[in-house]
Design a protein around this nucleic acid. Structure first.
Ligand code: FES
Ligand code: FES
Lengths: 133, 133
DNA sequence: GATAAAAGATACCACAATAGTATCATTTTG
DNA sequence: CAAAATGATACTATTGTGGTATCTTTTATC
């Protein structure tokens, strides 16, 4: 059971690096060296980060990436969602067969509570906090 | 992101059914009918449950399965572990590159705390409780 | 003892998600 | 125009999960 995939991991690391440079435009070769992630893979990840609005990109010579948001406004749960979709731990365990209905089911209630907790905790962690550590 | 896989789900359902029968030996055909899970798949799941000590099996005519533990002593987190391995949300996010060491890393600390919470909450739910619901 | 009904063991196939690669098009600076 | 960058997109590889098939072993019963 993995909470965060490799995509997310690398995405966070790339974001952290770019943010750390405080507005300087960072290009792929630099990131490849710093993060030791295969270049084509990293490129795909960066494109995703751009599309999801975490960073802005600049084409052409001297181009690269810059943050689109302040560091303390980038929550890693959002990055996770960008790469892994919504965080839903389990739709309906035991389906409708053994369980009268979902409103009463103690299992579902608890799974839901766990999920809320995970999302909420993950939603408290920002890139800024990460860089401080 | 899935907290519990189908294996686990079916495993729990099978366990719940077997436990509900209070010591009566339950065979596969009955379980197939009750749970509507394909027979060979269910058999594999049951074998796993036997190996992991949740149920006992009886071969031969009139054979089948009986619980090996009291209902309030079967925790669904254990079933999950049996099918999905240990619950580890993420080993070491950001690896050793951006982060000085794991003892200081605020992200890792938080991920670990989330993981502990998930395991602990999942570890409170028993089959007995499920059957009450 | 033969038969049939059960589970055990094991090997295999299918599908989906993740991980990773490759190629070509577009933009921009000089 | 040439070079250096990202955008778009399509493809392959690996892995984990889901699911099937087949054969062996045990045991109750006739
Ligand atoms: S079965 Fe769907 S909620 Fe309990
Ligand atoms: S990087 Fe390994 S713990 Fe923060």
């Amino acid at each position: 059971m993995k909470l965060l995939t490799r995509n997310t991991d690398y995405g966070i690391r790339a974001l952290a690096f770019i943010v750390k440079e405080e507005g300087r435009v960072v290009a792929v070769p630099e990131l490849v060296k710093a993060l030791k992630v295969p270049r084509p893979f990293l490129r795909k990840i960066l494109q995703r980060l751009v599309k999801k609005g975490f960073i802005k990109s600049y084409k052409g010579v001297g181009g690269g990436f810059r943050p689109a948001l302040p560091a303390d406004n980038i929550y890693i749960v959002e990055v996770a969602k960008a790469f892994q979709g919504p965080v839903t731990l389990n739709e309906c365990l035991l389906k409708k067969d053994l369980c009268p209905n979902r409103k009463v089911c103690p299992l579902k209630r608890k799974i839901d509570r766990i999920e809320k907790h995970v999302v909420s905790e993950l939603g408290k962690i920002t890139i800024a906090e990460l860089l401080k550590g």
